[in-house]
Design a protein around this nucleic acid. Structure first.
Lengths: 213, 213
DNA sequence: CTCCCCTGTGTAACAATGTCACAAACACTC
DNA sequence: GAGTGTTTGTGACATTGTTACACAGGGGAG
C-alpha cells in the first residue's frame, strides 16, 4: 500500500465518505503511514501517546499484564478501527492505561496529537467518529467485565473458540489463549483436554481442530 | 440548595473557574436541578440518556448486574464528577452500558443532551472537562479489571474496608459489600469471619468495627 | 543422522473462590 | 412473647488458580 490514497482511506473508513472533504484532506496530509511486523509490542502502559492511530490493516490486541506472566486481552482492533485508550490518552493528555501489541502485520496511519486535537475542535464529524469508536470499545470492555465476573470459564472458552476458528481449526498455543481470556495456561489445557475427551476437539501442538468439520 | 447559584457551581466544579464565562452561563441556564433520595435506582442498562448529569452532592454507584442476584460496582461518582457511561451514551447516541443507583441522597444538574452537544461543539473547555473525566473513570475501570483478574479477594476486601471505614467502622451488610466487589455474600462472610478470628475486626449485624481503633 | 534443547502440553495435588442448602441470630411488629 | 423478614454462619461440593514436575515433538548444531 505504501502511501495511502484518498480512495483507499474512504474505503477503510467509510464514515468519512459523508464527512466534509477538507477534514479528509487534513487527516491525510497531517498523517504519516507506518507498517509494523506481527507480534510486536507497540505500546506499554504508562507511555504517552504522540499520535492518534488509525488502523488500515492487520490487527492489534490491547491488554493488561498481571504478575506471574498472566495477561488479559481487553479488546482487539482491526481495519477501520481506532483505540479508545489511545484516543483518551491524547484527549486528556494522560498516560496510557494498557499495553498494545500487533497480532499480525499491521498498517497504520499516525496523526500527530496536536493535529488530532485541532481536527477534533474544528469538525463535528471528527468528534462523532471518535465518540462512536470510543463507545464501541467501551461496549466491549463492559461486556468483558460481565463475562469475567459472572461468566463461567468453559463457556467463555467455547465462545472464544467459535469466534476464532477458521475452517474448523485454530492455530494458537494454550498459552496464547490463556492470555486472551485472562487465565493461566494450565486451566486452558485442562478444559481443552476435557473437550477432547468429550469428542468435540482434537488437540495437537499449536493447533486445535474441530471434530466433525 | 434548591436552585444552584453560579458561585456554588464554580466551587463544586473548579475546572470552570478558568473557563470562559458564557460557557458557565449556558450550562446553568440550560440545566435543571434535581434532588434524588438515597438507594434509588436511577438508570438501567439499555436506557437512553436524555440528559448529561453533573453531580452536585451525594454519591452514585455505577454497576453491572449478573444472574443470581450478583452485581459488581464499576465505579462511584460524587460531588464534582460526571459519569463516562452517561457521557458516551449521549456523545455516540447509543444505549447505556450499565446501571446507576444513588447510594446517598443526591443532587444533580441535568443538562439536556441537545444543549450538551452544542456546548461540546462550541467550547474547547467543555471538551477538556468531559475528556478529563472520561479518562479518570476509564482509569478506574482499567484498575478494576486488573484487580478482578489478577488480584486476590482477601486483599481486595482489605483495601475496600480501609477505603470505606469511617471512625473505625463501616455500616454495611455483607451483601452490599459483595455487590461492590463482584462476589457472593457467602464469600464475604467467610473472609470477614477469618479476619475476625485473626483479631482484626469485630462483626455484628449491619456494622463492621475495626479492633484497636 | 543423532543428540540436545526449547517450547508446548499433560497432570496431580493443593489453595482460593463460587455455589447450594440450610441453620441460627437478630431486630421489628403485632 | 410469638411471628416474620433480614442478616449472618457454615458445611459440602464445584470451579478456577497455583505449583511443581514429567514428557513429547521439532528444529538446529554437531
Amino acid at each position: 500500500m505504501g502511501v495511502i490514497q484518498r480512495d483507499q482511506f474512504l474505503e477503510i473508513f467509510p464514515f468519512f465518505q459523508k464527512a466534509s472533504q477538507p477534514l479528509v484532506e487534513n487527516i491525510l496530509s497531517f498523517s504519516r503511514y507506518q507498517k509494523l511486523p506481527g507480534k510486536m509490542l507497540v505500546k506499554l502502559e504508562g507511555d504517552q501517546c504522540q499520535d492518534f492511530v488509525l488502523m488500515l490493516s492487520g490487527e492489534k490486541r490491547v491488554f493488561k499484564m498481571g504478575g506471574s506472566a498472566r495477561e488479559i486481552t481487553l479488546y482487539e482492533i482491526g481495519l477501520g478501527d481506532i483505540c479508545v485508550l489511545n484516543a483518551t490518552c491524547i484527549l486528556s493528555n494522560t498516560k496510557l492505561l494498557a499495553n498494545a501489541a500487533t497480532t499480525t502485520e499491521t498498517e497504520v496511519l499516525l496523526l500527530p496529537a496536536r493535529h488530532f486535537l485541532d481536527l477534533i475542535a474544528k469538525y463535528e464529524e471528527m468528534r462523532a467518529f471518535v465518540h462512536l469508536h470510543i463507545n464501541s470499545s467501551l461496549t466491549a470492555i463492559m461486556a468483558l467485565i460481565s463475562e469475567i465476573v459472572f461468566g463461567k470459564l468453559d463457556e467463555r472458552l467455547i465462545n472464544y473458540l467459535i469466534e476464532k476458528f477458521e475452517n474448523g481449526q485454530l492455530k494458537k498455543t494454550h498459552d496464547q489463549i490463556s492470555k486472551d481470556l485472562g487465565t493461566s495456561r494450565e486451566v486452558i489445557s485442562r478444559l481443552l483436554k476435557d473437550f477432547e475427551r468429550q469428542g468435540l476437539l482434537s488437540l495437537s501442538r499449536n493447533v486445535i481442530k474441530l471434530k466433525n468439520f
